[in-house]
Write a protein that binds this DNA or RNA. Structure first.
Length: 826
RNA sequence: GGGCAGGUGGCGGAAUUGGCAGACGCACUAGGCUUAGGACCUAGUUCCUGAAUAAGGAGUGCGGGUUCGAUUCCCGCUCUGCCCA
């Protein structure tokens, strides 16, 4: 009598067994090779979504596989638990952010356990607890000591809806990345981390990241935005001041016919002081600052400039050029001042055309064949003309020599700039890590002494949604004493960007309860770097670049020796349904809970892995999930039907031994082990690994009746079924454990060794060779593998069909490829 | 505008090194089993011509190229997605 497949009972039972036996708990063991498998930790929004299921299922296959391969596997999970939604929930529903967050974590933890992910739960990290965020504060203080954390008055992106400062990265097309409202500008004292100090290393470090997707490296590269060029000073005689210009094309400087400055340039006020329309200009400047920063992009037709009426001297030509202010020059990049070379920069060309400025060509194409387009700037490198002593040089030579001359004469030098800005971490919110500094009336800014960490978030706070941080309105928090003079002082009420938390959490897993340092350097040295990091490509820039920055900083602090935290990053694709990403606003969300309830965790895991390779987009389909459920049923029934073979109770058989069937299955078995092993280990193509398991299952079903007839056949069946169960272990872990037990084992699949294959048995001995005539497939034949090319040729020519096609004429050319084909050219 | 990724049956996808295009799954069709089926079993399914398990032709977004041979390499175009302006 076959037992029915009751996934709910089976899955919860094995989840309990793993937990009770602490199967996935690990400690440092220098005798074993280690493997640190990490998925991006979730924000505890309330419920897990399909993207999480996908991410964690991929990681779980790798982690379980590596464990079965003999690695000491660290596979931890935690919670990115600080952040805006908790506070928004507090404002909206009156629930304390902490309660909201901890409740969510409890629920989501149970969801992850219900999926059977092999986490080392004792290492769970929760960033909203003081035992975690105190180390954010510790690291911040270290940076402060070294000048890598600093405070400055700066323009900030301000979201009026969320009432907080946003990092540039959180402004998408001028709108808040969370609530989509238009971002405005404010000038505030802000805390910054000096990530730009590591700009060069963040870029050069890419060389070590050979196991990162190329496009992710490219995105980071664009983000860092290194450009080599030169700084040149243009004197402004009227003010007796210099304007420093950054250019990547100093070779075109003889064609610089004007200067354009950002409206935020420090000299702006002086430049317009004597302007006849001063008031009008001031108003425009004010308006422009507010607008352009928010949008960070300006359409062609909206580019506007104003002539200040003053002139600067081009140091190369000695000629005066007009100085303009314009809305499309950003103060953020370079020096906030650029030289306008209309002949060789399209943007400058359009500007010059609009304001009637001279266009002086100073570069001609290196090849006379290159046609100059009328009405367009020639932007390529070439040969200098109209450039005094530099005429005739190539752009490359000229850039060297001109920079050298500028340096020698003291009006310029070679320089490198980056697009990367220092990381503004101040947030005027409650649910974040308090920035551990104190402002004393007498002593000024004071760091909180290390022994006073953590600066804990006061529990009692009011969440009204009013302007400013709730922390400002808690006198017990704000009012403190100066650590230096003991006098009255105020605490900083800004909290840190939550990206700080996620920039080093992967270190914390190595020693999550460490109390004297952020993590134990020895334990970290054993586990780190993360051998495989898996997560959505939407974090390709922010999280991954911040984490790389923190790792380099922690190295410089002496806490670790590694330079790169994630030498291997697997960027997982989006989960979509009906052609677009699953999202609440689109209403196309599928709840994992319901799917687990209907089909079980194993079926859901298999489907989500089977439907597409990890790095590609994945399209949801419930029919597909049903298909995977049926696949599980087929395996279940197959094992059920053959349980007698394992119990040794089957009556001895003296049936016919089916040699061919035996050979077919044996070959399929060994080929499957080989393929599944390589697909997981080398390619991460879990979808093809699963299809290989399906093929093995199909073969078993086909051959089982013939094989059950003989003793030898039965032995092979037992072997094949056992290996199939083990191979299923990483994908459908509950099913595998249950079947393993049913076949009489007392060990766990999770703790078993991965099956090995015999290359001899996996080898095909017969190969189909195809015959092409003039590139078209015309016939095929079977031969033993590795048959020599001469025999292939003979065999091909002897085929009646081929002879017919040749019609007696000898082929002009014959190409033979061993084990592949014979190609005839007539 | 620049960069990157991608475009293969009705659908998700496979083809790992330039060598049988469409593995595996879904969906569908026919038959079987069944009181019943959203279970199970058997067979079939790229398109066109054809009665055909005969034979032929076309075919991996479009147009060219290299090659005995191209989904794979090269050039141009186009569309989609992502990132940056």
């Amino acid at each position: 009598m076959k037992e029915a497949y009751n996934f709910e009972e089976i899955e919860t039972r094995w989840q309990k067994v793993w937990e009770e036996r602490q199967v996935f708990e690990v400690a440092e063991d220098p005798t074993k090779p280690e493997f640190y498998c990490l998925e991006m930790y979730p924000y505890p929004s309330g419920r897990i979504h399909m993207g999480h299921v996908r991410n964690y299922s991929i990681g779980d296959v790798i982690a379980r596989f590596k464990k079965m391969r003999g690695f000491n596997v660290l596979h931890p999970i935690g919670w990115d638990a600080l952040g805006l939604p908790a506070e928004n929930a507090a404002i909206k529903h009156g629930i304390h952010p902490q309660k909201w967050t901890l409740d969510n974590i409890n629920y989501m933890r149970s969801q992850l356990k219900r999926l059977g992910i092999s986490y080392c739960w004792s290492r769970e990290v929760n960033t909203c607890l003081p035992d975690y965020y105190r180390w954010n504060q510790w690291i911040f203080l270290k940076m402060l000591e070294q000048g890598l954390a600093y405070r400055r008055l700066s323009w900030v992106n301000w979201c009026p809806q969320c009432r907080t400062v946003l990092a540039n990265e959180q402004v998408v097309a001028g709108r808040c990345w969370r609530c989509d409202s238009e971002v405005s500008q404010k000038k505030m004292e802000q805390w910054f981390l000096k990530i730009t100090a590591y700009a060069e290393e963040l870029l050069s470090g890419h060389e070590k990241l050979t196991n990162w997707p190329e496009h992710v490296l490219q995105m980071q590269k664009n983000w860092i935005g290194r450009s080599e060029g030169a700084l040149v000073n243009f004197k402004v005689p009227a003010l007796n001041k210099d304007i420093e210009v950054f250019t990547t094309r100093i070779d075109t400087i003889y064609g610089a016919t004007f200067l354009v400055l950002s409206v935020e340039h420090p000299l702006t006020a002086e430049l317009i002081a004597g302007h006849p329309e001063k008031e009008k200009l001031q108003a425009w400047i004010k308006k422009t600052i507010a607008e352009t920063r928010a949008r960070r992009e300006i359409k062609e037709e909206e580019k506007v400039g104003y002539d200040t009426g003053l002139q600067a001297i081009n140091p190369f030509t000695g000629q005066p050029v007009p100085i303009f202010l314009a809305n499309y020059i950003l103060m953020d990049y370079g020096t906030g001042a650029v030289m306008g070379v209309p002949a060789h920069d399209q943007r400058d060309y359009e500007f010059a055309a609009r304001y009637n400025l001279p266009i002086v060509p100073v570069i001609k194409p290196a090849s006379s064949e290159t046609q100059l387009e009328a009405g367009r700037a020639f932007e390529e490198y070439g040969i200098l003309i109209n450039s005094g002593e530099f005429s005739g040089l190539s752009s490359a030579e000229a850039m060297e020599k001109m920079a050298a001359l500028a340096e020698a004469k003291g009006f310029g030098r070679k320089s490198v700039t980056y697009r990367l800005r220092d990381w503004g971490i101040s947030r005027q919110r409650y649910w974040g890590t308090p920035i551990p500094v104190i402002y004393c009336e007498k002593c000024g800014l004071q760091p909180v002494p290390y022994e006073q960490l953590p600066v804990e978030l006061p529990y009692k706070a009011e969440f009204t949604g009013g302007e400013g941080s709730p922390l400002e309105r808690i006198p017990e928090f704000v009012n403190t004493t100066c650590p230096r003079c003991g006098g009255p002082a105020r605490r900083e009420t800004d909290t840190m960007d939550t990206f700080v938390d996620s920039s080093w959490y992967f270190f914390r897993y190595s020693s999550p309860r460490e109390t004297s340092l952020p993590f134990d350097p020895e334990k970290a040295a054993y586990w780190l770097p993360v051998d495989l990091y898996i997560g959505g490509v939407e974090h390709a820039i922010l999280h991954l670049i911040y984490s790389r920055f923190f790792t380099k900083y922690l190295r410089d602090l002496g806490l670790t020796k590694i330079d790169e935290p994630f030498p291997h990053y697997l960027a997982q694709g989006m989960v979509t349904k009906d052609g677009s990403a699953m999202s609440k606003s689109r209403g196309n969300v599928v709840d994992p809970d319901e799917m687990v309830k209907t089909y079980g965790a194993d079926a859901l895991r298999i489907f989500i892995l089977f439907a597409s390779p990890p790095e590609k987009e994945f399209a949801w389909s419930e029919e597909g999930l049903e298909g995977c459920y049926r696949f599980i049923l087929r395996i279940w029934n197959l094992v059920e039907e053959n349980l007698d073979l394992f119990q040794g109770k089957g009556t001895p058989v003296a049936g016919q031994f089916d040699q061919a069937s035996h050979q077919r299955l044996s070959k399929k078995l060994h080929q499957t082990i080989k393929k599944v092993t390589e697909d997981i280990d080398q390619r991460f193509h879990l979808n093809t690994a699963i299809s290989a398991l399906m093929e093995l299952t199909n073969s078993l079903k086909k051959e089982k009746d013939a094989l059950r007839a003989s003793q030898k056949g039965r032995e092979l069946l037992v072997e094949a079924l056992s290996d199939l169960i083990l191979l299923l272990g990483p994908f459908a872990p509950h099913l595998a454990e249950e079947l393993w037990q049913k076949t009489g084992r007392t060990t766990l699949v999770a703790e078993s060794s991965w099956p090995a294959y015999n290359p001899e048995l996996a080898r095909e001995e017969l190969i189909t060779v195809v015959v092409q005539v003039n590139g078209k497939l015309r016939d095929k034949f079977e031969v033993e593998i590795d048959t020599d090319e001469e025999s292939l040729k003979e065999k091909a020519l002897s085929l009646p069909r081929i002879q017919e096609l040749l019609g007696g004429r000898p082929p002009r050319k014959i190409i033979c490829v061993k084990n592949k084909l014979v190609s005839l050219v007539v």
